[in-house]
Design a protein around this nucleic acid. Structure first.
Lengths: 164, 164
DNA sequence: CAAGGATATTTGCAAATGCATTTAAATCTG
DNA sequence: CAGATTTAAATGCATTTGCAAATATCCTTG
């Protein structure tokens, strides 16, 4: 009996190997959560004395690169919930680090501007972020790092929901 | 004038390139936060209907691989604050998925056992985790994936605080 | 071997978070 | 072009989180 009698709409994928077979330390999501957990925690501890939380620090970092984004885009770029971001912006604005400004073309939307003071704060903070980055990549040469970042870019393209 | 007159305890590092020069999309911590943010959010949404939160899901996943760990080690492996983990374990224990048992050799410490029911739940849940993993690595071949995981392992070794 | 310090876990409590809703404005549709 | 729908951001509120303190046990050292 040939298989023409059996409908095969999809060739069944082989069953996923068990996590125990892969091993935690070969499982990319586990490793990435561990690494980013540590990275974010150590940065958070270092920033605490500057009165900066993780959301506030991320906002400054993104604004140092991206000019006057909409809040909705800033939420994607900083990986912060929009409501949480809204409150982080309240604080940053109260401290004079950023400025909200209604978009001229769409008055529902708000653009965020980094102030001089916000830029100065970020410049004081960047060496610490940079050190954390250097620690992470210690013993990893340029070629390996570039390949690694290339893979990350593919992964982000695979799973992101937003085009930015 | 030779440099023997000048103390040079450390050759000053070149100043870190600015984030704007690197570009967000070439900056590994940014990419990793974006990717894991998406990965964790989509998993969380999928698990919500099973009554599983991220901490609870991670506990089941780790327990499917590691036999009866101490709570303190489970906190490291799941990347969850110990107090948060303690409460997640309360819930899982109430639902009959895990069992706390005082370590016979040290009665301060508690070991966590996965019950039959907990294992069954994880087995129902694993294909979804596996799918999320597959989506993430779509278009990335085995050699690239292995190199990527190798780099992750180096990074974790660089920054981890705990030997496990 | 007792006192002091260290370690494992839980718990109280304030702060942070995120969902759902609200408000306001833009866009679509018949 | 009026009404319905969508989109952007802020906010109310319940839940979750994490720090610090409490509790219990173990280890060290004089």
């Amino acid at each position: 009996m040939t298989d023409q009698s059996q409908p095969k709409p999809e060739p069944a994928n082989p069953p996923a190997p068990r996590l125990g077979e892969i091993g935690l330390s070969n499982y990319a999501p586990y490793l990435m959560n561990r690494i980013m957990g540590r990275y974010n925690a150590s940065l958070r501890d270092e920033m605490a004395d500057l009165g900066l939380t993780t959301p506030k620090m991320r906002v400054l970092a993104v604004l140092s690169v991206i000019e006057a984004p909409l809040i909705r885009d800033l939420a994607v770029l900083t990986v912060i919930e929009q409501s949480t971001l809204s409150r982080a912006l309240d604080q940053l604005a109260a401290e004079g680090m950023v400025r909200r400004q209604t978009d001229p073309a769409d008055s529902r939307a708000t653009r965020i501007y980094l102030t001089k003071s916000g830029r100065t704060t970020f410049e004081a903070l960047w060496p610490r972020m940079s050190d954390a980055h250097a620690r992470m990549f210690k013993g990893i040469d340029d070629a390996e790092r570039r390949a690694f970042v290339g893979t990350l870019q593919k992964m982000l393209a695979n799973i992101r929901k937003h085009e930015i």
